[in-house]
Design a protein around this nucleic acid. Structure first.
Lengths: 117, 117
DNA sequence: GTTCATACCGAATAATTATTCGGTATCTCA
DNA sequence: TGAGATACCGAATAATTATTCGGTATGAAC
């Protein structure tokens, strides 16, 4: 298992929350699953900017943390369904607020975000 | 100015919010300022795991995006105060919820977060 | 004058995260 | 059989982000 070089204060709530959800696509994945896109291929079509590989990796991290669970059907069509656990659902209000916040301010932020780091 | 290689969908609210706040220390900085630690040295003492340099850089990004404003006093002691703008304050409920969420679940997550990426 | 705390910045490096590419495997349908 | 959709994984690379280190500058206090 990969070992993180830099230690961090896992007693701070914000740090913990950012460790769980502070990746480029994780809040979008939570949002997608909540909207009913439960299969990897569906999630990919919903978040088309992300590659299947990164969705894969972030889903497996969320799985490892207990934010989602996976149900695999062996019969055709070969498919897996990812669903939010109680832990995952508890984060939904925050995802919703992130979306609302971004939609409210995206117009005034767009130029600044496009030009800089 | 640095030019981002990978384009992103700035129409998605979540993507926008994550671009503004999705850095390792930004939500903590917002929290610190809201709690009254308005000067860089105070913020650093409050978030002691972070180096002054990274707080510096993230503060200047937040400044550039209009999330905070800076007031500099020329008289001694040499000091700058960073304060939240209306835009910054609008994000406070989310920071609060991130903190609450992390504090609620940090015990059950601690081991998993410590062992893996 | 020297030392200290303040704020800030540039540049090299390290660490982390995301992407690209190619591969495995299963089952359906033409 | 061969193409296409599904899910998934390993490894190299690229991109991004954070850290380290050293520097500038100011004025106070000793």
């Amino acid at each position: 298992m990969y070992e993180r070089k830099i230690k961090e204060d896992l007693d701070c709530g914000i740090v913990v929350a950012m460790r769980v959800f502070g990746a480029k696509w994780k809040p979008c994945i939570i949002d997608a699953i909540a909207k009913g896109f439960t299969r990897p291929s569906e999630i990919h079509r919903y978040i088309s900017e992300a590659t299947p590989r990164v969705l894969d990796m972030q889903l497996s991290e969320l799985l490892g943390l207990g934010v989602v669970v996976k149900e695999t059907t062996d019969s055709f069509p070969l498919c897996s369904d990812y669903r939010l656990t109680e832990l995952g659902r508890s984060f939904l209000p925050i995802v919703q607020q992130l979306d609302d916040w971004g939609n409210t301010y995206k117009h005034e932020l767009k130029d600044k975000l496009a030009e800089a780091v």
